[in-house]
């Protein structure tokens, strides 16, 4: 009997250690499965669907259901687990790093028109601006006939070599997700397969110079999958003077750029190596300009999903925000 109790306690300890380890690795551990897993048709059981397209949308809505909120809070607790909110039905109080899809429901120009959140963009008709098949690393490629999705080959998250959004990200929420080395979807920055970076535990809510996500240039390559013409050097030019605003190049260590030394969450830079914690230091000549230096990923208050109102950035009038965070010579 003693031997039985000893074995039982050892097993219990092992389970506890396993749970704690998984928690420390970011995997979702909760005793409340139903908080996330509600048996939608087609999810927990096989059901006959009238149209394949409908299933496609339905799968995508699973993401939206969990990561949305009817109030203005951008982090909610579900089943004891913190869930980042990417879509608030009302103006979000503190949009997270990716912004918020609330804005695209008000204007096509303010966000990505993800299915189940916003209808297809009236201007682009589902075709990503600047799309270049050669730059899209997905073996499937983007299909403009279908709506933009959270994940999969028509989306950003998950494995873009898998068409079905749900399949492309399946199990990632429960998998070991450390270190973030991009080898699996779960071990990728924000489940963006292949992307490395440091994840702020509050998704940049309350971000500051000392507390924020840390990006690498992987994030630019991800954007380039769909917006390749804004990334490829053939289109940007190869050196100053640039023809389009460059990304994935070091912030120059000369001129006005040398004054951008303290990290500003409103104009983040990408690091050349993966940081294990946030740094408030910006190193011109080393840290890189990234798509996210100016844009957010989901939706923003401003046109072109910018971090600021481009219509109201003025040069030489004392402003220090927006473009002028990097272009410091135009501040005064």
């Amino acid at each position: 009997m003693k031997r039985f109790y000893l074995l039982f306690y050892l097993l219990l300890c092992y389970v506890l250690v396993l749970i704690l380890k998984l928690k420390s690795e970011g995997a979702i551990i909760s005793d409340n499965c139903s908080a996330c897993h509600v048996p939608y048709p087609g999810m927990m059981e096989e059901v006959a669907l009238v149209k394949a397209k409908y299933k496609y949308l339905l799968d995508d809505s699973l993401c939206v259901e969990c990561h949305s909120s009817s109030d203005n809070a951008t982090i909610k607790i579900v089943g004891g687990v913190k869930v980042p909110i990417v879509y608030n039905k009302v103006p979000p109080e503190k949009p997270l790093a990716g912004g918020n899809f609330y804005y695209v429901t008000k204007s096509d120009r303010k966000g990505h028109n993800v299915g189940r959140i916003a209808s297809m963009d009236k201007k682009f008709k589902g075709f990503p601006p600047g799309y270049d098949r050669e730059t899209d690393q997905s073996i499937i490629g983007y299909n403009p006939e279908k709506p933009l999705t959270c994940a999969g080959s028509n989306g950003c998250h998950g494995d873009r070599n898998i068409e079905n959004p749900f399949e492309s990200i399946r199990k990632s929420h429960h998998a070991k997700d450390r270190p973030i080395d991009g080898t699996t979807t779960a071990k990728s920055y924000r489940f963006l397969k292949g992307v490395k970076g440091y994840e702020d535990e509050e998704w940049n809510q309350n971000a500051s110079a000392k507390k924020h996500n840390e990006y690498t240039s992987d994030i630019d390559k991800l954007c380039a999958n769909c917006h390749g013409k804004f990334y490829k050097k053939d289109f940007l030019g190869k050196e100053s003077p640039w023809f389009r605003h460059p990304v994935d190049i070091p912030l120059p260590d000369k001129g006005e750029y040398i004054k951008y030394l303290k990290y500003n969450p409103n104009a983040p830079v990408a690091r050349q190596k993966v940081f294990s914690s946030p740094s408030e230091e910006v190193k011109p000549g080393e840290d890189k300009v990234t798509c996210l230096s100016c844009h957010v990923a989901h939706g923003s208050h401003y046109d072109s999903i910018l971090r600021w109102d481009y219509d109201n950035i003025y040069t030489h009038e004392g402003q220090k925000e927006g473009c002028l965070i990097c272009h410091t010579g135009k501040q005064d």
Binding site: G130, F230, F243, R244, H245, C294, Y310, D311, N312, I313, Y314, T315, H316, E317, G322, C323, K330
Partner: peptide, 13 residues
């Protein structure tokens, strides 16, 4: 030159 960036520049053509 003072004024808005956008009056003279377009970011991505």
């Amino acid at each position: 030159v003072k004024g808005r960036c956008k009056d003279c520049h377009t970011m991505h053509y």
